[in-house]
Design a protein around this nucleic acid. Structure first.
Length: 554
RNA sequence: UGCCCGAUAGUAUAAGGGUAGUACAACAGUUUUUGGUACUGUCUGUCUUGGUUCGAAUCCAGGUCGGGCAACCA
């Protein structure tokens, strides 16, 4: 399918460039700022950049955009590297904008020498004021007319630590009346006496994004520098710096960032959720971060597939969270080991089954993949089924168990419900059923047709596990676009913990690598909170449930 | 009232002057020892007004609507 997919607009551009002989290779880069964890929106960018280089025979660098020491941390660098690798991508070089600080500094002196940059002593407020507004031009100040030697001397003094934070900045000398605000003498360097996660205290001046990004692209000979739409107005400046410096002409192309329903995709908002303890860290399985999806059991394949399906264009978009769920179900259906787990047990006694006898049955580990083999499951006189798989007075088209009705127990026998035993409060205590010996799975000679098949578990062979059931983090599709603060729309049901759930004992052998389908329920994986005696599973995603949908309609 | 970007089913995304297609969602059905999976079918779309043309989603002009831009953030 990916072979036949039509090209997106960036691939179009690349193919035109290649056809025109503009480049021989396509070099891209993924340039995160290490100030937070990667989210699914970054996955879209990662997929785009790496796939482009792979498809057209080029390289992709991982470059950390670390020009602001007060916000960036090594912890984030490590998490970003882990996430990119987990997604299945290998970068060509690992670079840091901070690798280029010396070179960028020299570029700045070059511009000063060309009379295209100057040191401004104004305060941040004054600079903002003099910049004007989108509808009114800015004004020039006297610092703009400083001589080249004076600018050079002051800039060197800035570098040498002679001034305090905010005392001076280096600005490009472009046009204070430019219709594009970014061209009104943008700041190139600011003073920050702060320790940088890589360069330590070596520098006290740091380049701004605009003066670092394009030059870094150029130094790496990035041919197609892909970023999101909010950088469109920066492109003019991106090109300007490269042109003044006469360096390798990287070009910037912009696409629309990913937005997904029922979540937020801003690093700032995600950080807020973490810091205010609304979620339990960056990898809380309800977060839209890569690390959260990993913990929750999503596969890298399914995320890559999702990123390829959503397409790349320039219009604002809101992708249905359901599409991601579809992608993960699609993959998990093929690879997940099937197991039986009863969430909410109802005891069932097979009255015509010998006491203390254990009948060994077997069941497919994965009907989608016979190579996964079968496993043993014990059948005994006392079993548990799901409480909601029984109804005393069932509605029409209810295929599950009811008084007098028959159902198949998965991979076992057909049973019939004969008697409902209740306690003194009238609550159902247990069900008495009989089984049809000739209906044994795989050797059924009973000729009885039943519509329903239930999962079940032998009461003598249960193991107790903890389940964490996740739902969307917000109750609203676009929590940021509602009238109230987005935190008001947190879904109180987004994490429900089921403590003592009965699972078949085969799950005692569960591994962190394996994915499971709890039959008729959903996909699950072992959580990192698991300890030797206590298994904890995360629900990755539920199975599609057309019966529940049917009931909702009624 | 400046500059820039955008507008195709509910949601995304194709069609590059010549049959508006695909996926998800929704709906109906077939198969089924998972009410899962698989399969089949159905529904819904070119923002608007003009122009160019034999022919316009596509090219041109005006309008409308949505988004971005005034950090010593990226």
């Amino acid at each position: 399918m990916p072979e036949e997919r039509s090209l997106n607009f960036i691939e179009d551009i690349v193919e035109e460039d290649l056809a025109a002989g503009k480049y021989k290779h396509v070099h891209t880069r993924f340039p995160p700022e290490p100030n937070g964890y990667l989210h699914i929106g970054h996955a879209k960018s990662i997929t785009l950049n790496f796939n482009l280089a792979k498809k057209y025979g080029g390289k992709t660098n991982l470059r950390f955009d670390d020009t602001n020491p007060t916000k960036e941390e090594t912890e984030y660098v490590e998490s970003i590297k882990e996430d990119v690798q987990w997604l299945g991508y290998k970068w060509d070089h690992e670079f840091y904008a901070s690798d280029y600080f010396e070179q960028l500094y020299l570029f700045a002196e070059t511009l000063i020498n060309q009379g295209k940059a100057y040191v401004d002593d104004s305060s941040a407020e004054t600079i903002a004021l003099e910049k004007g507004t989108p509808t009114t031009p800015g004004i020039t100040n006297s610092y703009r007319e400083r001589s080249i030697p004076e600018n050079l001397k002051l800039f060197r003094e800035m570098r040498d630590g002679k001034y305090q934070d905010g005392e001076k900045v280096l600005r490009a000398k472009i046009d204070m009346a430019a219709p594009n605000m970014h061209m009104r003498d943008p700041v190139m360097y600011r003073i920050k006496h702060a320790a940088h996660h890589r360069t330590g205290l070596k520098w006290c001046i740091y380049p701004m994004y605009d003066f670092a990004h394009g030059q870094s692209d150029s130094l790496e000979h990035i041919t197609h520098s892909i970023c999101t739409l909010e950088f469109v107005p920066h492109r003019e400046l991106y090109d300007w710096y490269i042109q003044q410096l006469g360096i390798f002409p990287s070009h910037q192309y912009e696409f629309a960032r990913l937005n997904m329903s029922y979540t937020v995709m801003s690093k700032r908002k995600l950080l807020q959720l973490v810091q205010e303890g609304i979620v339990d860290g960056w990898d809380d399985p309800r977060m839209p971060t890569i690390s959260a999806f990993r913990r929750r059991g999503f596969t890298p394949e399914s995320i890559r597939n999702f990123c390829e399906r959503i397409g790349v264009a320039k219009r604002e978009n809101l992708i249905d969270f359901g599409l991601l769920e579809f992608c993960v179900r699609e993959h998990l259906n093929k690879i997940a080991q099937r197991r039986m787990v009863v969430f909410d047990p109802l005891k069932l006694v097979i009255t015509n089954f010998e006491e203390n006898h254990v009948e060994n049955l077997e069941s497919d580990n994965n009907p989608e993949n016979p190579a996964d083999g079968k496993r043993n499951i014990p059948f005994t006189r006392e079993l548990y089924i799901e409480k909601d798989d029984f109804m005393e007075t069932p509605p029409k088209k209810y295929f599950r168990l009811a008084p007098g009705k028959m159902v198949r127990l998965k991979s076992a026998f057909i049973i019939q419900c004969n008697e409902v035993i209740k306690d003194e409060f009238g609550d159902i205590k247990e069900l008495h059923c009989t089984y049809i010996p000739e209906s044994r799975s795989g050797q059924d000679t009973s000729n009885i047709q039943v519509k329903g098949t239930l999962h079940w578990i032998s009461a003598l062979h249960t193991t107790s596990i903890e389940l964490r059931m996740y739902d969307r983090l917000f109750t609203e599709e676009e929590p940021l676009k509602k009238e109230k603060d987005f935190l008001e729309y947190i879904n109180p049901q987004s994490c429900i913990v089921l403590k003592n759930v009965y699972a078949e004992s085969e799950l005692l052998n569960a591994t962190f690598h394996e994915r499971y389908q709890f039959i008729r329920k959903g996909y699950f994986c072992l959580d990192k909170d698991t300890t030797a005696g206590h298994l904890v599973f995360n629900q990755t995603v539920g199975l599609k449930d057309s019966w529940a949908k049917e009931m909702k309609k009624a």
